[in-house]
Design a protein around this nucleic acid. Structure first.
Lengths: 340, 340
DNA sequence: CTGAAAGCGCTTACAG
DNA sequence: CTGAAAGCGCTTACAG
């Protein structure tokens, strides 16, 4: 490995000058800098980031902690983050914790040892107690879901308002008996979407009775099981609002398998707006989040914080991006529908 | 930040002893070691990996380079890799290059600076020339797709044999005019699947004419466009073999939209066996790769290499895992089908 | 079993 | 503008 010493020797300068030429573009003569740079290139010099970090420099590395890599929501989010990281010359490291808080904490411990500059945290089902401690002192932006107790910037959408949007669409179509396919019980965003469903129903004078709620977990499997369960209920359901698209996809399959037609017999609305939702059969009407922008915005917020002078008095920021109802082919008006 | 010096002072020993107690479990008395360990915990000591790496130790970090995070194939692969990394106490870093070789090279350069111990490389469409150079000297295992010129271990499936499996299934059902939905032209695995399709047809006495081939790119969008294109051809096609599941999903949508029924009017076979393929409508018959095991096996191979004494004479290994035909509901026998 | 010292590759005041 | 020196936090022969 070629080091600053090699470059210094070949250039006939000290290692301090090499370092300055490489980093601090100000306090070195143009001629010297050019020569050093040229020789560094000729020699195939690559700075050792470990040494750099040890000597106190930023590592220009941020980490993204993902709770669930299987949900197509996250790849789209990653793209948004990646775009910004690339633009600003930062390396993006991703760690996957499968919604396991201990794994997330372990990742955080290791990332701290590596002296990452900042962290983008998608909270998932994490209660956050251990995570809050493990991320202490590292600039952090939380994505999509709020972590109780974490005093960090947050970028998210208004899940509750989004859910109302979806349910109001169904109400406007004439549906009254609108079931709700939940996400995992301990995920905050899932809870908020649940409240949105409830509020929209109540506002329309419909009682959100327990027989309208069926438990899911944000996966196709969970949505499928929920669909099978719904079919056994004599609830007169004509529409289902699903807490996320992946669950809706599983639900669609259960309904279709049972011989029901969507949207002729039952209407279905999803949440997230993943790319895939445009390819289901029928194409899924859904409450779309600006997923890419969510990632982009969070990354920008983090990198701006890192670039700014450390301002201890600055309040944590919350950015709420808008959702949008994407009407496709899985919803139809009630008079034209039969009941489940 | 508490350092070895703090621990040493509190324990009344030298930093050398602290280091030994922390790492080398042999050359320190049990009593001393226990005391040091206890004090390190009390003080909340966390070793600085930058310093460790600088001093010559392994970083216990491996990186996974992904060409396409949107394809659900990759999340399942990541899970396999992650499992092994966790078991063996390594941090897994993921980098996404969106099939852009320059980005992959940039990642490789940065990862080298960070002194990752080894690399898992999913090659994607990368021609590999620059990548080969950028990964030189770092233990590397290539996943899924061969990189011409890279003298590294390879874990993959026999794409050609897998494709034959899928096409033979259709031939066995009585289909003759079997179209092929390609992947990106420069992806090796896509090319090999294409050859499998061709071979199976030829072996059955069917000529693989150009009007049977339609171009895709492994995405839903590509599959959809290909489906629209196929519909305009007077080729008498009764079945389509798709180079991957995601493409098949887009194809399904184009066919369905045009009023065709799958499998009654057209049979469709995919490739990959992503979880999602069990949730399409109809459920997709596909040539399944052991995706999770692919990731697991590659990670094990890499970590075994890292653990072993550096053996310069050791030949690069190639591990070929079996594919399996997963018959679901998107294929039916030809006599019962009409033509496109 | 344990300590003093050198060294990993860099950056950054401090002088000049 | 430039160099000599100290220091970042660790590990590892080398002595004892």
């Amino acid at each position: 490995m070629v080091t600053v010493h090699d470059v210094a020797r070949h250039a006939g300068v000290s290692i301090a000058t090499v370092s300055r030429a490489l980093n601090d573009r100000s306090r070195v003569s143009a001629a010297t800098r050019d020569r050093v740079l040229r020789i560094a290139t000729e020699l195939g010099y690559h700075p050792n980031d470990l040494a750099r970090g040890l000597a106190g420099m930023a590592t220009r590395t941020i980490a993204l902690l993902l709770p669930d890599i299987t949900n197509p929501f996250f790849p789209e989010l990653v793209k948004g983050v990646q775009t910004v990281a690339d633009e600003r010359g930062h390396l993006l490291l991703m760690c996957h914790n499968a919604d396991d808080e201990d794994k997330a904490i372990a990742d955080l411990v290791l990332l701290r040892r590596k002296r990452v500059d900042g962290i983008l945290l998608v909270a998932g089902t994490l209660p956050g107690v251990g995570v809050v401690a493990a991320s202490a002192g590292i600039p952090t932006v939380v994505l999509d879901r709020r972590v109780p107790g974490l005093d960090a910037d947050l970028v998210t959408v208004d899940h509750r308002a989004g859910a109302r949007l979806g349910v109001e669409h169904l109400l406007g179509l004439g549906h009254r008996r609108i079931a709700y396919l939940t996400g995992p019980a301990d995920v905050v965003s899932s809870q908020e979407r649940s409240e949105g469903w409830r509020e929209a129903l109540v506002a329309a004078g419909v009682e959100p009775t327990p027989d309208l709620v069926v438990g899911g977990d944000f996966t196709e499997d969970g949505g499928y099981a929920a669909g099978r369960e719904l079919l056994t209920r004599p609830a007169g359901i004509t529409a289902v609002f699903a807490a996320n698209d992946l669950g809706a996809i599983g639900l669609l399959r259960a309904l279709t398998e049972a011989g029901l037609r969507v949207p002729d017999d039952v209407s279905v609305v999803g949440f997230d707006g993943v790319h895939l939702a445009a390819y289901t059969s029928p194409r899924l009407t859904t409450v779309a989040q600006p997923i890419f922008d969510l990632g982009r915005t969070a990354a920008e917020l983090l990198l701006n914080r890192l670039a700014a002078a450390p301002a201890p008095g600055s309040e944590p920021q919350t950015l709420v991006l808008p959702t949008r109802l994407e009407i496709r082919n899985s919803t139809a008006s009630y008079p034209l529908s039969c009941q489940v």
